[in-house]
Every structure is written in structure tokens, then in C-alpha cells.
Computed example of a mutant assay.
Amino acid sequence: MEFGRITSEELEKVDFTLPPDRQETTRLLASAKSAKPEIFVGCAKWGRKDWVGKIYPKGTKEAEFLNHYAKHFNCIELNATFYRMPTVEQTQGWRSKVGSDFKFCPKFTDQITHIKRLKDVKEATDRFLEGISGFKENLGPIFLMPHPGMAPKTQDTIEAFIQSLPKDIKLFVEFRHPEWFSNETAFQSAFSMLEKNKAGAVITDASGRRDCVHMRLTTPEAFIRFVGNGLHPSDYTRIDDWVQRIKQWMTQGIERVYFFMHQHEELHSPELSKYLIEQLNNHCGLSIPVPKFVEQDMELFGSAAPPKKRAPRKKAS
């Protein structure tokens, strides 16, 4: 994942401290009060050949990757549907390889969001929704990322698209144009629009775009996209902070959290996911199954535990 990528020199200057929750987030969670929130942790893809011998048994064929992925994680941020329109046959096939509690979180295809920018897309949207219907009860929230060039002036177009969707689907929206965050009026308007339409707001934690860590929930659910830096010490301190924020949200009534692990090079996503799950279990009283690595000697691939010496946080210059 290239979004928010910065140089190693710039990385040392980033202040990764999570901002406080927006007042609207606190208000919204106060009205939710879920007794037992659900926590989902996953990656962005399962088709990683470099995970063979790591979390996939040695000799695993590509056709079996999803079967093994679903033994370690309970959800997937399905970016494959962004690049290719899904079919019912395809999603039924994927569904047959996972358990009943597993959730697919498909991303709207680029034909809809990037090529046509949400205009005149009824036919394509109908095909997309028909395609993902094969997931049935394994369908999680759908992920909508408007083209990064869509600025606040396109809010009416985005809202019209959201309102055109069936009311029974769960939707999360990720804004990327900087003006959504730099202009407070635009921010308030856009996120109030999402809340009014019962659409969730994606929080993307990337090194080079700290504005996207907006901490404004618009539903009593969170959809977090975490972008690490190859198991840099700051990856672990950032995860520690997220664990504490999720713990706080659990006491406030959050109903569901989806946490998706990304790396600029996805090789090490399993290690950081394992660390996240262990910390969630330890600090939040959860019992999420921990990914199991093929090799007991983790030094072969890099330990899931943080380095002994962690990098101190530094304020951005």
C-alpha cells in the first residue's frame, strides 16, 4: 500500500500520537451502549506467496491460500473487487472456503469510484451488488473510497450515490482529498452527512497523512486501516495506542470494530496482526484466536514481538 508512504528520514520526525476523539464520537457512543462488541482483525489480501512457510504451510497452492488465511483471521479488506468486478460464482466460491463467522469487506470497483466518479453508475453498481450477494451472511461492510480527487465540492454527488444504495447494506466511506480535513466547515458537513445516512467513516492511520486519523465516528462502529512501516519500532507503539483507544471505546458502548493491517510491503502484516491480537486479548479481555506461524522459530521471519528498544515519539517539525 503506497498511500501515506514517506522516507525513513521523514518517518523519524512523525508524531504518531492518536488525536483525542471528536465530541461527536463521544456523543454517538454514549447512545450505543453495546454490551458485547465484536472485534474483527484482518489484512488487505490473502494471495501472498511469501506467506507460504510463514502462516501458510509449506507447499500450499494458491487455490488454498484463502482456506488457510481464514484459519488465522476473521475478516478481509477485499481490495480484489476494486480491480475487477465480482461475480456471484466467484464470491460463492470464496465463501465456500471460510467459516460462518468470517466477514468479507469488499471495496467498490474502480469503474464506479474512480473511472466514473460515482456518476451514471447505476448499471455498474447493480452488477457489483449482484456479484457480492454470493457472500450471503459472510458479507461485512462495503468499503467506498471516492476518487482522491473528489473534494468537498463533490459532496452532493457522494451523498446521492450513498442514498441510491439499498438500505440494508452496511457502508463505510474513506475520504482522501486533503480539503475534507483542512476545512473545518467541509469536515463537519461531510461527516454529519455520513451520520445522517447511517454510513460509517473510515479512519486511515498512515505515516504521511495524519489528517486522515480524524477520530470522528459516524456510526457506533469503527473501520480502521492501519499502514505500518515494515515492523519499524513505531509500528508497535502505534498499535499499543490503538489497543488503548479500542479499550476506551468498548467501555463507551462501541458495537463493532474492523481493524485492517497494511504494510507498504505486505510481507510482515501477519507479524503485526499477531501482536495486535495479543494486545487486544491482554488489555481488552478478548479471546480472539491468535495467528499461528508455521515456524516456531520466529527469527526466520522476524518476531511478532516488538523490538526491545522502541523509538521515542518525536514531534513533527
Rank of each mutant, 00 (worst) to 15 (best):
F260S: 06
H262K: 02
K61Y: 08
H72I: 00
S100Y: 07
L194H: 01
G149A: 09
M261A: 10
F172G: 09
I39Q: 09
T125D: 08
T237S: 14
R216V: 10
D101Q: 09
C75H: 01
P166I: 10
T237P: 05
R225P: 06
P312T: 05
I288F: 02
S31A: 13
R225L: 02
H283L: 06
V213R: 13
E10G: 07
S96K: 09
K198R: 12
E255K: 15
P146R: 04
R5K: 15
E10Y: 05
L118C: 07
K315H: 11
G47I: 04
L29H: 13
F108Y: 12
G53S: 03
Q188P: 03
L194M: 10
F181I: 00
W242S: 11
K308F: 12
L18R: 12
G99F: 02
L217V: 10
L28F: 00
A199V: 14
G149H: 02
S303I: 02
L272W: 04
I224T: 11
L28E: 02
F191H: 09
R310F: 03
P106Y: 11
K103V: 08
I169Q: 01
R84H: 06
E2C: 05
G131L: 03
G93T: 06
T7Y: 10
H147P: 00
E24F: 00
E10P: 02
R48A: 11
P178F: 13
K315W: 03
D101A: 09
H147A: 12
A222N: 05
S96R: 09
Y56L: 06
G42V: 00
D50Y: 04
K314G: 08
G59F: 01
N79E: 06
K13T: 15
T91K: 12
F223H: 02
E179H: 15
V257W: 01
L276R: 14
A30H: 12
A199M: 07
P166K: 04
